[in-house]
Design a protein around this nucleic acid. Structure first.
Lengths: 279, 279
DNA sequence: TCGCCGCTTTCGTCCCGCGGAAGACAAGTT
DNA sequence: AACTTGTCTTCCGCGGGACGAAAGCGGCGA
């Protein structure tokens, strides 16, 4: 803990000069670098922008983008900008823990959305992040936070705290030892506090996060675990409401009921009614 | 063919995939071939299966899969099988005509689903196919046809017929001249009949498809266009019900109302109320 | 008109990705 | 236990694809 902390190279990508011999990027990594250039804040890019963001020469970028385009990974709009193609959406939908899970859970999540009229998300863990596989917005609220495919650090969201609380120790250590990004003054950034929060989540089976992610609109997020065939936590179901409108204690029961429904559909032993035969 | 043929280079690396077009495989194409190995019927694969389906040597597959895995494009489950990773879901969600569109349309589609209690899909055109960007299932019906990321030929679905009817002539010619895959005895496979159907769709603004896709469960699909900023058709909204339960004429009004709502949200001039100023 | 910027194409060199081969490992069969 | 079959992993030499420089193209604003 008290070890000397090396200077963090701020924003500096490992600038590779040809001839320095160090780097040797692989061809596959270049393809992925092109895809990596796209992001929520950069959904469409020009060729030059891709080139710069991927750190590739314009020639290489041009060729790779051309190949990706004919395959359908990228598409070009009339104004010449490039964007992600539908082929990648099609592929991404095949993710076992992604839209496959959504497919099964969507009726339950839909009911929850209808019942609570709140923002509802279903998230799974990917590394040290939570990725939303389903997100339904409340009618009025325009929250850009929760989108399908949205990715946030585990410690800063209700669903993430659930997933982290029930994740393996090595995952928890990795998150707790790493920097805890702060999004608002209320975001938990102290490892000890986070550790206590996680213990509380494990004890109660519910995570309650207030104002962790957004500063402008005070929000209350409540989340519970969803379990799979081996009773392991495979996802987290969460709702977000404007702070003050609803108590967390009022949301927990309906959340738990919905989560249990999904868990049962997934084949979780603990969620099966005693009478029902195991398939 | 009577030209002097040099001795066949035994160790030639230009080993082509049999039947998979003409070769000169590029490195990028190999990466894409690995991704291409996955599909709805093959959501998870072993390394050898990927190797075979991609037409790559096991060595190459092993290396590429390794790179794709550390990047997050693929993930490996406990049983050793590979599947699509959440990173690709995240990327696919950035598709301008994909989940971006879904994000905007989902409240309307949701209402339609609640009102009709039917299967509802929102599809966009990608080449000669329709790709669903949103799909909501009716409570009882388990229809594997409509999933987010699902892809079907334009001529065989209600939404596809709408998209084809309003697509450019070159797209129509390509589909009409190509083979029209038959899924059921009712699937339109005659180009002339399809041409008449498309004209009817253009005239009425509604596509009605009966038993085009599924043979076992008689189904009625109704679809209408969704328009964008330039009044061009950017998507199609469709519902599917069991044949006999509802008349197409009863579904069309609510479908049109919903589609108009989405079109308005997209900024379509024809869907704007007269008072509103054009942006 | 010029210059600027982004995109496209060509081309020769070099290096990295390729497949063969062999080893490690697991599971089913005789 | 020995054999078989299938999988996954590692190592290595060679050759051809991928790379970047540079030149050509085209639109836009000064």
């Amino acid at each position: 803990m008290s070890t000397t902390r090396p200077l963090r190279p701020v924003g500096g990508r490992s600038r590779e000069v040809p001839g320095s011999g160090q780097g040797s990027a692989t061809a596959a990594s270049r393809v992925l670098a092109v895809l990596d250039a796209f992001g929520p804040a950069h959904a469409t890019l020009t060729l030059s922008e891709i080139s710069r963001r991927a750190g590739l020469s314009l020639t290489t970028t041009h060729r790779l983008v051309g190949e990706l385009r004919v395959w359908g990974a990228l598409e070009r709009s009339e104004d010449g900008r490039y964007g992600i193609g539908l082929r990648l959406l099609e592929l991404g939908a095949l993710a076992p823990h992604g839209l496959q899970l959504r497919e099964l859970a969507v009726p339950y999540v839909d009911d929850l959305h209808q019942a609570t009229r709140a923002n509802v998300v279903l998230g799974v863990r990917d590394g040290a992040d939570v990725v939303y596989v389903e997100a339904l917005r409340a009618r009025g609220a325009v929250r850009l936070m929760s989108r399908i495919g949205g990715r946030w650090p585990l410690h800063a969201t209700g669903t993430g705290q659930v997933l982290l609380a029930f994740a393996g120790p090595e995952v928890q250590e990795e998150v707790l030892s790493g920097p805890l990004t702060s999004f608002t003054p209320h975001t938990i950034t102290d490892p000890a506090a986070l550790r206590r929060t996680l213990a509380e989540v494990r004890r109660t089976g519910v995570a309650v996060a207030e104002n962790q992610l957004t500063a402008d609109a005070p929000a209350l997020a409540v989340a519970v675990p969803v379990r799979g065939r081996g009773d392991e936590v495979v996802a987290a179901l969460g709702v977000t409401v404007a702070a003050g409108t609803t108590q967390a204690s009022a949301l927990a029961p309906v959340l738990n009921a919905t989560a249990r429904g999904i868990s049962r559909a997934l084949g979780a032993p603990s969620a099966q009614p005693p009478s029902r035969r195991c398939t």
